[in-house]
Amino acid sequence: MPHFVISANRTADGGVVYLAGDRRWTPELSAAAAHPSKAATRDGLSWARTQEAFVCDPHPIKVKLDASGPIPVDTKQQIRAAGPEATLAALGFLGAQSDAPFIHRAELPADGAAPPSITAVDARA
Protein backbone atom coordinates (compact mmCIF):
# COMPACT_ATOMS: atom_id res chain seq x y z
CA MET A 1 0.00 0.00 0.00
CA PRO A 2 1.64 3.29 -1.06
CA HIS A 3 2.22 6.07 1.42
CA PHE A 4 3.27 9.66 0.84
CA VAL A 5 5.87 11.95 2.36
CA ILE A 6 6.38 15.66 1.77
CA SER A 7 9.64 16.74 0.19
CA ALA A 8 11.16 20.07 -0.91
CA ASN A 9 14.49 21.67 -1.76
CA ARG A 10 16.22 23.97 0.71
CA THR A 11 16.29 27.59 -0.45
CA ALA A 12 19.84 28.09 0.80
CA ASP A 13 21.52 25.33 -1.20
CA GLY A 14 18.81 23.38 -3.02
CA GLY A 15 19.43 20.34 -0.85
CA VAL A 16 16.68 17.72 -0.66
CA VAL A 17 14.69 17.74 2.58
CA TYR A 18 11.68 15.89 3.95
CA LEU A 19 9.05 16.95 6.41
CA ALA A 20 9.19 15.08 9.73
CA GLY A 21 6.23 14.55 12.02
CA ASP A 22 7.19 17.43 14.30
CA ARG A 23 7.15 19.84 11.34
CA ARG A 24 10.90 19.86 11.16
CA TRP A 25 12.71 19.65 7.81
CA THR A 26 15.24 16.85 7.67
CA PRO A 27 17.60 15.56 4.96
CA GLU A 28 16.97 12.04 6.28
CA LEU A 29 14.18 10.29 4.39
CA SER A 30 14.03 7.73 7.19
CA ALA A 31 12.88 10.51 9.55
CA ALA A 32 10.11 11.76 7.25
CA ALA A 33 6.47 11.51 8.29
CA ALA A 34 4.58 9.04 6.11
CA HIS A 35 0.94 9.68 5.29
CA PRO A 36 -1.48 6.93 4.23
CA SER A 37 -2.81 8.89 1.24
CA LYS A 38 -2.06 11.93 -0.89
CA ALA A 39 -5.08 13.66 0.62
CA ALA A 40 -3.58 13.18 4.06
CA THR A 41 -0.59 15.33 3.08
CA ARG A 42 -2.84 18.37 2.54
CA ASP A 43 -2.34 20.01 5.95
CA GLY A 44 1.38 19.42 5.90
CA LEU A 45 1.67 20.81 2.40
CA SER A 46 -0.33 23.89 3.32
CA TRP A 47 2.04 24.52 6.21
CA ALA A 48 5.09 23.75 4.07
CA ARG A 49 4.05 26.38 1.55
CA THR A 50 4.25 28.99 4.30
CA GLN A 51 7.94 28.12 4.76
CA GLU A 52 9.12 29.65 1.50
CA ALA A 53 12.08 31.42 2.98
CA PHE A 54 13.45 28.03 3.96
CA VAL A 55 12.24 25.63 1.27
CA CYS A 56 11.15 25.67 -2.39
CA ASP A 57 8.50 23.64 -4.13
CA PRO A 58 7.12 21.36 -1.41
CA HIS A 59 5.39 18.37 -2.96
CA PRO A 60 4.19 14.87 -2.01
CA ILE A 61 6.14 11.81 -3.17
CA LYS A 62 4.93 8.23 -3.25
CA VAL A 63 6.80 5.79 -0.99
CA LYS A 64 6.55 2.27 0.27
CA LEU A 65 7.31 1.50 3.89
CA ASP A 66 9.77 -1.08 5.12
CA ALA A 67 11.72 -1.63 8.30
CA SER A 68 14.17 1.16 7.48
CA GLY A 69 11.39 3.68 6.82
CA PRO A 70 9.95 5.18 3.65
CA ILE A 71 11.48 4.18 0.28
CA PRO A 72 10.51 6.15 -2.84
CA VAL A 73 8.61 4.13 -5.42
CA ASP A 74 9.82 6.18 -8.38
CA THR A 75 13.40 5.95 -9.66
CA LYS A 76 13.67 9.74 -9.88
CA GLN A 77 12.82 10.10 -6.20
CA GLN A 78 15.18 7.26 -5.27
CA ILE A 79 18.03 9.12 -7.00
CA ARG A 80 16.89 12.38 -5.46
CA ALA A 81 17.08 10.73 -2.05
CA ALA A 82 20.45 9.06 -2.60
CA GLY A 83 22.18 11.71 -4.72
CA PRO A 84 24.24 11.10 -7.84
CA GLU A 85 27.44 9.16 -7.46
CA ALA A 86 29.16 9.56 -10.78
CA THR A 87 31.93 12.14 -10.58
CA LEU A 88 33.18 12.05 -7.04
CA ALA A 89 32.86 8.28 -6.87
CA ALA A 90 35.36 8.16 -9.72
CA LEU A 91 37.63 10.43 -7.70
CA GLY A 92 37.52 8.34 -4.57
CA PHE A 93 34.56 9.74 -2.65
CA LEU A 94 32.53 6.80 -1.40
CA GLY A 95 29.16 8.39 -0.68
CA ALA A 96 26.63 10.25 -2.79
CA GLN A 97 27.91 13.49 -4.27
CA SER A 98 25.32 15.45 -2.38
CA ASP A 99 27.09 14.36 0.81
CA ALA A 100 30.53 15.24 -0.50
CA PRO A 101 32.31 18.12 1.21
CA PHE A 102 32.76 21.52 -0.35
CA ILE A 103 36.41 22.26 -0.73
CA HIS A 104 35.97 25.79 0.57
CA ARG A 105 34.48 24.38 3.72
CA ALA A 106 37.48 22.18 4.19
CA GLU A 107 40.80 23.61 5.19
CA LEU A 108 42.23 25.55 2.30
CA PRO A 109 45.99 25.74 1.85
CA ALA A 110 47.89 28.90 2.54
CA ASP A 111 48.21 31.41 -0.29
CA GLY A 112 50.59 30.22 -2.93
CA ALA A 113 50.34 26.57 -1.97
CA ALA A 114 49.02 24.06 -4.44
CA PRO A 115 45.26 23.60 -4.18
CA PRO A 116 44.12 20.35 -2.63
CA SER A 117 42.98 17.62 -4.96
CA ILE A 118 39.47 16.38 -4.52
CA THR A 119 40.69 13.05 -3.24
CA ALA A 120 42.82 14.79 -0.63
CA VAL A 121 39.85 16.76 0.60
CA ASP A 122 37.69 13.67 0.64
CA ALA A 123 40.27 11.79 2.65
CA ARG A 124 40.06 14.48 5.31
CA ALA A 125 36.30 14.50 5.36
Partner: peptide
Protein backbone atom coordinates in the same frame (compact mmCIF):
# COMPACT_ATOMS: atom_id res chain seq x y z
CA UNK B 1 20.63 29.62 -12.00
CA UNK B 2 18.41 26.54 -12.09
CA UNK B 3 17.06 24.34 -9.32
CA UNK B 4 17.94 20.73 -10.11
CA UNK B 5 17.23 17.48 -8.31
CA UNK B 6 19.74 17.86 -5.49
CA UNK B 7 20.95 21.44 -5.61
CA UNK B 8 21.12 24.65 -7.60
Amino acid sequence: LYMQLHAY
